[in-house]
Nucleic acid binder design. Structure first.
Length: 763
DNA sequence: GACAGTGAAATTTTT
DNA sequence: TTTCACTGTC
């Protein structure tokens, strides 16, 4: 495609952003304002019109999904963009650390520890802690790393409310370094430190990346900002894109300040605002604007609709979760009968736990769906076991992985004997002469002291590991240090030659694909030889689980990688850095599915029809939030609303089951902020929503009928016992209430005439 | 070191 | 209601 062609579909501001060069650029892009189009066009434009080497362009995003989409779209506009680095922050960190592993003093074959692994490691270092305490510490260490704080920065911990001591953090960090692995925080923090202190690497990186772009910049944290600062050389072109109204990861260290103060840090910054929304119909935008304007801490902007349409949103008040599920099913099924594809629908919720009800009923009603972003698959016991085994093969110093697999299935290596192996390991590994000393060596050195049963068990374990390692070695090509794409990219930078490179690249890659065995062979062998297969077959039989199937799924996904150390490392990286499992087979068979997804996960996505469920106080917004946190919840609500293209629905329940108990719930206070002109009500509408006037004054007034006998109030009736007011009705001459009793029975009363039999219970 | 029995906690949001 | 960590027994 010709540059004029792809520029011509942009509006004035978008085009301005695309062709901008020279000074740093901050693009404030409202929801649905064509942000991705601008970034991808900009990448294509820089390559084809400005003659910038694609290899020197780095674009970082927040999620893998966004990164993939960005790369795909950029490549469509400009094929050379395949050579650009388009990655998530964390995957960039991983790439960087593998490249400079030696300088960073970590193992080149490191694997990434997730939160669970952090906890396991902490428990090893601090046996006196329980799991929960270790979890708390892990969380605080992660936060410290988000702020790029080292143990010696102890005096700054209190600034961020981190109840963490230098000693604990330091001991954890040392132990982690011993394993040769890194955690998520390290993936950002270590590159920052290395770039700060190593001039050569800094120069190296500055000469490589001439352009650095950051998407979803509002969700970057302090460490990520520091990384951006380090990546920016004197001649680097920096361009960040974000929307302060969509900052929803403060709980994880995101700093809205990064976007609010960008121009202070990067001198001469130009700001371009994109406020035309191409996604949603006007009522949706009016609702979004009416909500977000209640936030004080924002730069301030208004979405201006491009589209036309006047279909109002629908807010339904339902009695309980079951009704909510039923209502959503009906919406979807009715529209489907009218020819609307399932895939047009997305059901959004605040917490993952809420998906269950929908899943059950969708299955029952045969509504195809897919749940986005549940980590469940990789948290399953059998999958973690298999992955630990693979991690151990990649890095035989990984003690967390080792402990997890050495005695599973039972080989007679209990805690005491594991301790002994670890001790042997530490004694030998600490003497610098034996840098290559692994946990397997420690096993070999310890095994002779064990009694017969343990000896046999451990020997067979060693044997399995060694066989698999041999298999890996035999199939790893010589000097296979870098991936093929990387090698080719480097050649291309040096010779900077023709457009043949794209062809050359695909050719070589596909050749290697043909000639190399698949990693799935190794995974399959590992699962059989380790005894996992048999172990989980037995479990499946006893408790009717699907564990062997899940393992099979893991084997399948490994078939995309080559059988080599590089392939293994890529596979593990891919899994650690992108936990969303693509259910490729199932999805390909029938891509027409309803999307079930948390509001957080919808960032960057859009759907023709959106249902925002569970709009109740305590759930959305979640309870015990201070004003700042309420603002973040409000931004989250704003993100949810702005996902909708054509139709938007809200649901709110009067009762919600939690922990097996049914609790009364009040409609979300955010619903009161919705612009009434653009929403219609449905179901048992609470008084607060009946008219503008009554929304504040009346309903809180204890002296009126409506004030006292309101929805959710617990009552006692002499004849029927305890119950809740599930609906009220003031449309007639007399004020009416509907009460649901514990028996399940629903009765209507006129409270004025029941004062001797009906009492309000104050808990 | 496996297992049953108990009691308490659990549901934020994720790279 | 379900799950998980902890305890005591074999």
């Amino acid at each position: 495609m010709d540059a004029y062609e792809y520029l011509s579909v942009l509006n004035k501001e978008q085009r301005e952003a695309v062709v901008h060069s020279g000074s740093p650029l901050l693009i404030l892009a409202g929801a649905g304002s064509g942000k991705t189009r601008v970034i991808t066009t900009k990448i294509a434009y820089m390559i084809s019109e400005l003659g910038i080497n694609p290899y020197s362009i780095l674009a970082v995003t927040f999620t893998k999904k966004a990164a993939n989409e960005m790369q795909e779209r950029a490549v469509l506009l400009e094929p050379q963009a395949v050579k650009s680095q388009i990655r998530t922050f964390h995957s960039f960190g991983s790439w960087f650390l593998r490249r400079y592993a030696e300088e960073a003093e970590i193992d080149k074959n490191f694997t990434v520890y997730d939160d669970d692994d952090m906890v396991s490691l902490l428990l090893k270092e601090f046996p006196e802690m329980n799991r929960q305490q270790a979890g708390g510490v892990a969380h605080k260490i992660s936060r410290a790393k988000d702020y790029c704080l080292l143990p010696e920065d102890e005096d700054k911990f209190s600034l961020y409310n981190l109840e963490l001591t230098k000693e604990v953090y330091e001991r954890y960090q040392n132990r982690l370094r011993q394993t040769g692995n890194v955690d998520f925080g390290d993936l950002i923090m270590l590159p920052v430190l290395l770039l700060k202190q190593n001039e050569k690497i800094r120069a190296d990186i500055h000469s490589r990346f001439k352009v650095v772009m950051v998407d979803e910049y509002q969700d970057s944290n302090v460490a990520q900002f520091a990384l951006l600062e380090q990546l920016a050389g004197p001649e680097t072109y920096i361009c960040v894109v974000g929307d302060d109204d969509q900052s929803i990861y403060k709980f994880r260290g995101a700093e809205v300040e990064n976007i609010l103060t960008f121009q202070d840090h990067f001198a001469g910054t130009q700001i371009i605002k994109l406020e035309t929304n191409y996604r949603s119909v006007p009522p949706v935008l009016a609702l979004a604007n009416s909500v977000i304007k209640n936030n004080k801490n924002r730069l301030g902007k208004n979405l201006v609709p491009f589209r036309i349409g006047e279909k109002k949103a629908v807010l339904s008040f339902l009695s309980n979760q079951d009704d909510e599920v039923e209502y959503v099913c009906n919406l979807i099924q009715k529209s489907h009968r009218e020819g609307v594809p399932y895939a047009d629908w997305a059901v959004l919720y605040r917490t993952n736990a809420q998906s269950l009800g929908f899943e059950t009923e969708f299955l029952h009603k045969k509504i195809p769906y897919s749940v986005v972003g549940t980590l469940k698959f990789y948290q399953r016991e059998e999958i973690k076991d298999a992955l630990s085994f693979l991690s151990f093969l990649a890095n035989p110093k990984d003690e967390v992985a080792f402990s997890r697999i050495v005695n599973k299935p039972s080989r007679g290596i209990g805690e005491v004997r594991q301790e002994k192996i670890l001790e042997t390991y530490k004694n030998n590994a600490n003497s610098t002469l034996l840098e290559k000393y692994s946990l397997i060596d420690a096993c070999l050195d310890t095994v002779s002291s064990f009694p017969a049963k343990a000896k046999t068990g451990l020997n067979s374990f060693i044997q399995v590991v060694q066989n698999l390692q041999t298999m890996l070695q035999e199939n790893s090509a010589n000097g296979e240090d870098k991936s093929l794409v990387e090698q080719l990219a480097e050649v291309s930078l040096k010779s900077d030659s023709s457009s043949l490179q794209g062809d050359l690249e695909t050719q070589v890659v596909s050749d290697s694909f043909k000639s190399t065995k698949r990693l799935s062979e190794l995974v399959e062998k590992m699962i059989k030889d380790s005894g996992f297969q048999e172990y989980y077959e037995n479990q499946d039989e006893i408790s009717h689980t699907q564990k062997v199937n899940n393992l099979q799924e893991l084997i399948n996904s490994a078939s995309l990688y080559s059988l080599s150390f590089q392939g293994l490392s890529d596979f593990l990286d891919h899994i650690e850095l992108d936990r969303t499992l693509e259910l490729a087979d199932e999805e390909e068979e029938n891509p027409d599915r309803v999307t079930l997804i948390t509001v957080h996960n919808t960032k960057g996505l859009e759907f023709p029809r959106v249902v925002l469920t569970g709009m109740e106080n305590g759930l959305f917004p979640r309870g015990d939030k201070d004003e700042d946190e309420i603002e973040e919840e409000r931004r989250l609500f704003y993100v949810g609303i702005t996902r909708a293209k054509d139709e938007l629905y809200f649901t709110s329940c009067g009762f919600r089951r939690m922990y097996g108990h049914t609790e009364v719930s009040q409609p979300s206070s955010f619903l009161l902020e919705l612009d009434r002109k653009n929403v219609v009500f449905n179901g048992n509408v609470p008084i607060a929503f009946r008219s503008e006037k009554s929304s504040v004054g009346k309903s809180f007034n204890q002296s009126t009928m409506e004030g006292r006998w309101k929805r959710g109030v617990k009552i006692y009736h002499d004849d029927y016992g305890y119950g809740y007011i599930m609906a009220t009705d003031d449309s007639g001459d007399e004020y009416l209430i509907s009460v649901q009793f514990e028996s399940g029975m629903v009765k209507r009363f006129m409270p004025r005439y029941q004062s001797n039999r009906l009492t309000i219970i104050n808990d």
